[in-house]
Write a protein that binds this DNA or RNA. Sequence first.
DNA 1: GTGAAAGCATAGGAACTCCCTTGAGGATCT
DNA 2: AGATCCTCAAGGGAGTTCCTATGCTTTCAC
Lengths: 304, 304
Amino acid sequence: MLSLHQLRCFLTVYELGSLTAAADELGYAQPSISEQVRSLEKSLGVQLFRRVGRGVVPTTVADTLRPHAEATIAAAEEARRAVQRVKAFETGTIRFGMFGSARLYVSAGLVTDVLERYPGVRVEIIGLNSSEVMDDLRRGQIEAALIAAPPTSEGLEVLPVARDEMVYVSMDASRTATPVTARRLAEARLVLADTSYRATDSMRTALRKMLHEAGHNPQTRIEVEDVETAIELVGRGLADTVVHQGAAKELVPRLAPGASWTSLRPRQYETFAIVHRVNATLSPAAQLMIELAVQRIRDVAEPL
Amino acid sequence: MLSLHQLRCFLTVYELGSLTAAADELGYAQPSISEQVRSLEKSLGVQLFRRVGRGVVPTTVADTLRPHAEATIAAAEEARRAVQRVKAFETGTIRFGMFGSARLYVSAGLVTDVLERYPGVRVEIIGLNSSEVMDDLRRGQIEAALIAAPPTSEGLEVLPVARDEMVYVSMDASRTATPVTARRLAEARLVLADTSYRATDSMRTALRKMLHEAGHNPQTRIEVEDVETAIELVGRGLADTVVHQGAAKELVPRLAPGASWTSLRPRQYETFAIVHRVNATLSPAAQLMIELAVQRIRDVAEPL
DNA sequence: GTGAAAGCATAGGAACTCCCTTGAGGATCT
DNA sequence: AGATCCTCAAGGGAGTTCCTATGCTTTCAC
């Protein structure tokens, strides 16, 4: 079987024209080199050197082999170097899971933080919705994530880090003058985001529970995919919505100027947490990501 | 110490996403693969896979390593092949790929030329269809080939040398009085050769494109395996066909006397090219083969 | 929930490889 | 002719590789 060691020995012998010299160069005994060369010749089925009196002379086959041997060794070296660079965070890809509206709080800033500190790396932020991200976590596609704390979390370890209140947003100031009760919520014309994940979305779960406890039936008039769209619709006066306060602060001035918001009654919170598989040993990259993400989210939401 | 064996194991595990599957694939026991991967991880000082429930998932470091590992293995393979080529030239067989109808142009004369010059070698002409030959080239079964230039050619170097026009052949002289348009082609009762390779055959690709642009649906009435049969069927008046002009010149007088041919409108060409792996060092025998083949095909087709 | 199946890790032992030391057999140079 | 340098071969110790058997965890189906 062809091996890198054989090729290294071959090249040194080729350059120096002597087994003994090659042995000195590589720090082995001469017979070891002799054996490596012989096994390489046997494995290829050709003679690489003519043993001629004092020293050895490469054959034409050796001439053919040399550049390829060099290329192979170089490729292996490059492989090792590439890995070391990644290890030192000089390059490579860091994957981190994050739920939809979390990107409003932290993602841009987080990415720039990482890029600033490690200019060579590529960062991937994965996932739109918490439940989606959790599936990826269980499958091992993602090492760790920052998501809205889920009610069910089998096989996953959850570390709450902050919470954010859910607020009612409307263009009609009279509707945000006082906290919104379950009854008023049930009567409102609502637009909610994250349509595709209706069943599992944690904010919807919370709302549903609140309405249900008050004896109302949850019904949404408009469903859209992302928070921005929802708030834009509010801005046009077509509906009201319920979003995280952090999202409201960030988006309302831009997308729905003139709109205002208020708490729900009782107040509803969504908890943000770092989540990863139980018993997982986290890579340094993931640990860094977590540290920075936690730092940022605590600036905009209520720390726990 | 980094070894080729470790890299091979790593790649197989990466592709299959499972140690057990990789062990089956490579013909080892599962613990052996496990050990190789672990020793590679230890040698590099990084984790390459996360062991996650059923199966393993590559880390981002593994993503980084993969292309380098592939390059290294490929370089080693190329080294071995280079040596084998030289070796083969001294003792054994020259293999040369050639697409189906090219043998009508050059094969017999080419082989006698080569045998005359190198009495010791054995010559094999391989392949019926261009796409088939290309697979053999990528796999390294064939050193070089003369084929119809392919649209896609990853990993292969293509040198166009000549082109030949595609012509419409029929027993009915009225149908070959004027160049055949896409519309007439769509209405014709056609027989086409190379059935087995329907999807990838380059002549069919060209025809399909021509018909499609004119808004017609390509449909063939009769499918046969080789050009000779197709032209014989034309000779019996059962259908018309489209073949290379070179093939028509060679075969129509013999197999379909009385048939005539004309151009398509717009004219369609197929380009012949010499193809080999990129960065391959060609053996003297292959170089001779190429030289002679090019010389011969330029006698019968239009040189480029 | 519970049992079965799948998959990785670990342990222990046989076979092999790697590399050393020692000594023999030839070229080359003086 | 003899000294010197080099390759080659044999034997033995250390380390690897690869196997079988087994244990543990996760996943899937009923």
